[in-house]
């Protein structure tokens, strides 16, 4: 899992560096593009992902104490906050589409849609992983056994959060 996480981090690093270089070459376009984004939705999504990661962290602590059902419920909470993130992101996309803004509008929006949609796919995959480990925890499959599967799933989710922590100021604030 760690090699997979490192590979994902590298791909996103290339995206982020590419975004920064493009911005330096098109300062006015990127400034106008950022002004058209809904900053509050970026803020809500950041807090939703941070809180989701917090729940996963508590869930890991619970499974370490053999409280499998509590761990599964905490993962359910984490998925709830991830759903807030997904809902806000989809609303944000449709809000831009209504303004006539698409992936073809300009370089800023091409990169904006590519990077955020790629991140959204990671959130969706992360939710599938969280569902899988929550189900396994609820069924008692981690009782007295190795927790490496659970830990790997949790680490993947924290990576998704870590990426958004960098993405948020880069696209919405700076």
């Amino acid at each position: 899992m760690w090699f997979f996480i490192l590979a994902e981090l590298t791909v996103f690093a290339i995206f982020f560096i590419g975004f920064a270089i493009s911005e330096q070459q098109n300062l006015e376009m990127f400034s106008q593009g950022k002004a058209q984004l809904h900053q509050l939705s970026g803020l809500i999504n950041t807090i939703a992902l941070i809180t989701s990661s917090y729940f996963v962290s508590l869930s890991l602590a619970a499974i370490h104490k053999q409280a499998a059902n509590k761990a599964a419920l905490l993962l359910l909470g984490a998925k709830g906050f991830a759903l807030i993130y997904i809902s806000v992101k989809i609303w944000e996309y449709f809000s831009l589409f209504e303004q006539g803004i698409t992936i073809e509008t300009n370089t800023f929006f091409t990169l904006y849609f590519l990077i955020t949609a790629f991140h959204l796919m990671h959130v969706l995959l992360g939710m599938v992983i969280l569902t899988f480990i929550a189900k396994a925890a609820w069924q008692g499959k981690y009782q007295g056994k190795s927790l490496s599967g659970f830990e790997a799933g949790a680490s993947y989710w924290h990576m998704v959060d870590l990426l958004w922590i960098i993405l948020f100021p880069l696209i919405y604030v700076i």
Partner: peptide, 10 residues
């Protein structure tokens, strides 16, 4: 990032 790596990811 340090908080996520050290505390959340343990």
């Amino acid at each position: 990032g340090q908080q996520i790596v050290d505390v959340f990811m343990e």
